[in-house]
């Protein structure tokens, strides 16, 4: 039986939504789903080298004043940093992470090397639409 397919359009570059995306990705990995993540606008900034691993450069989308409390709680609960969810999911199942070409340019990222090593390629929106059409589930985060 073919694996189910999940497509995520990841617009957000905020710590809370990136963490949520990572947790969903983990569930998909446990289910052996094939996943394609298309990283759009704000998300592309979060995946840039020098930013992805630095929580000081990322904020919360909701209740921004609670960032310190949010981060402390995650640490206390042994929840990994958001990027580690993506890394672990890639180790467990077929996960591809594509950076939107325009989004990369907005933040000064022209080349794949400008992004963390988890990024597989830089693509256009056509591939994202095709992936959504062909997947069993698609999410916009």
């Amino acid at each position: 039986m073919e694996n189910k397919r999940l497509t995520i359009a990841l617009f957000s570059g905020s710590l809370d939504k990136l963490t949520a995306a990572g947790i969903i990705l983990s569930g998909a990995a446990a289910d052996d789903m094939d996943v394609e993540v298309f990283v759009l606008l704000q998300g592309a900034r979060a995946f840039m080298k020098g930013i992805a691993e630095n929580n000081d450069k990322l904020e919360l989308a909701e209740n921004p004043k609670l960032k310190a409390e949010f981060m402390e709680s995650l640490e206390k609960l042994n929840v990994k940093p958001w990027l580690e969810f993506f890394r672990e999911a890639k180790e467990l199942t077929n996960v591809k992470i594509y950076i939107c070409g325009l989004a990369g340019k907005v933040w000064g990222g022209e080349k794949l090397d400008d992004f963390v090593d988890l990024a597989d390629d830089i693509v256009g929106i056509g591939e994202c639409i095709t992936s959504m059409e062909e997947s069993d589930i698609h999410l916009f985060i």
Binding site: I23, S26, A29, A30, L77, N78, V79, F85, L92
Partner: peptide, 11 residues
């Protein structure tokens, strides 16, 4: 560990 830690560990 909190969700999804146990699930991933089991997997």
């Amino acid at each position: 560990t909190a969700c999804p830690g146990p699930l991933l560990a089991a997997k």
